[in-house]
Write a protein that binds this DNA or RNA. Structure first.
Lengths: 223, 223
DNA sequence: CAAAAGTCTTAAAAAAGTCTTAAATCGATC
DNA sequence: GATCGATTTAAGACTTTTTTAAGACTTTTG
């Protein structure tokens, strides 16, 4: 799935250059030509915002504040201003990075990738790795000790949730919320059965028992 | 709780300047004077790493790779090198920011704050610490002297209550209220048995007796 | 569109872990 | 040293989890 980046930049030429750069590098670019327009366009579908500071109408500080108050999408400020005080101010308002013009395209792309990567904490969102299990999010495959494991949809979602939280216990209600999209009724056994099936399938490929039961709470992956 | 920052920098003078800067701004600074030392020192307790590129022994790329393979602590690279290719390379290896020397202290601090702020995705260690016992609320795990202690649900809740009130005696009725959700009947021995089991489990890992009996009242942690 | 294949939920029994109770013993306080 | 609360142990009650299997449901295939 391509990431969507919102470009807020009044200079149509620069806006265009940025759009082409992003598109050529596998992103989906959305353009806004003023701060107010940017705030209108901006919603949950946007994964990152490139904000040029020299905008008519509103100043950068106001826009950052408004963007950040809506949600926590990462914002990279692009600006010709080298003044440290302005930089510090923008960072404190929630900017996630600050790139001064002129910049190298490669560096901007690297900084964009770093911000997007940091959203999930993992360097590569598509593939999760835990011990000798790998889970590939883009083609819904799981391998254990190099061999492919056939999982059903819920089993896959369950393993994915556990692997996304390797150091945390997933509570039963959290699992029902995310994997099943509803609150569990107290005597529901569905999760237990799925855990049982998942363990059984993984055991075919490895002697190790990966999933640990936290009594009365939920499940977690062993250290 | 102060955030801990690991400085990896071979120049003792710069290392010192950074340490003072961080300490004055409310951080807890840990210093390492080579990449290999940095990798040794680095563990879950570190919230962020400042990595200077001009290091003897190992090059920056190798160090970043090793640090990132251990866990996802954010790394800010500090370097005199302006070369874009090196920057891009480091970002792709997992660096989270790149600051070129000379830099303004305020900007470095702002960038550090931005990286620490962004940590929301990572396991928020909701952790209580008392002497050499740590209790992790999101994991439901307890360690004593670094070793994991297996506690049942009530034992965990009991220890948690005591650790949340380190300087206070928890009365029996308070403990029943919070851990058991009901008022105790006078001749109930349940709490005593649980305290006994908790002490027994902790004693496996440490000679120390942590829990003090306050006669006729309840329990508290020793000073 | 119907049959087949696969998946999910439910139920029930067995297994595993935890909690409470009771009784014997220990220790503090007066 | 008498009394009362605290500790410890072990047994049985209780709760939660695991496993199995059957039927309901969904998706795929011909």
């Amino acid at each position: 799935m391509n990431k969507t980046i919102l470009i807020i930049e009044d200079d149509t030429e620069i806006n265009d250059v940025l759009r082409i750069l992003l598109t050529q590098n596998g992103y989906h670019a959305v353009c806004a030509f003023s701060g107010t327009e940017g705030i209108l366009v901006h919603n949950e579908q946007v994964d990152l915002i490139l904000l040029d500071l020299m905008l008519p109408g509103k100043n950068g500080q106001d826009i950052i504040s408004e963007l950040k108050s809506k949600n926590s999408v990462p914002v990279i400020v692009i600006s010709a201003i080298h003044d440290v005080n302005i930089k510090v101010d923008l960072f404190s308002l929630g900017a996630d990075d600050y790139v001064t013009k002129p910049f190298h395209n490669e560096e901007l792309l690297a900084r964009i990738a770093a911000r997007l990567r940091n959203q999930t904490g993992t360097p590569n969102t598509n593939e999760l790795v835990y011990k000798n299990i790998t889970l590939n999010n883009s083609n819904y495959t799981v391998t254990c000790c190099g061999k492919s494991v056939e999982l059903s949809r819920h089993e896959f979602a369950l393993l994915k949730l556990l692997m996304e939280n390797p150091n945390r216990t997933c509570t039963k209600s959290m699992i029902y919320d995310i994997v099943w999209d509803y609150e569990n009724s107290a005597d529901d056994n569905t999760l237990n059965v799925h855990i049982s099936k998942l363990r059984k399938k993984l055991k075919q490929y490895s002697q190790e028992d990966y999933i640990e039961t936290v009594w009365g709470i939920g499940y977690r992956l062993k250290k």
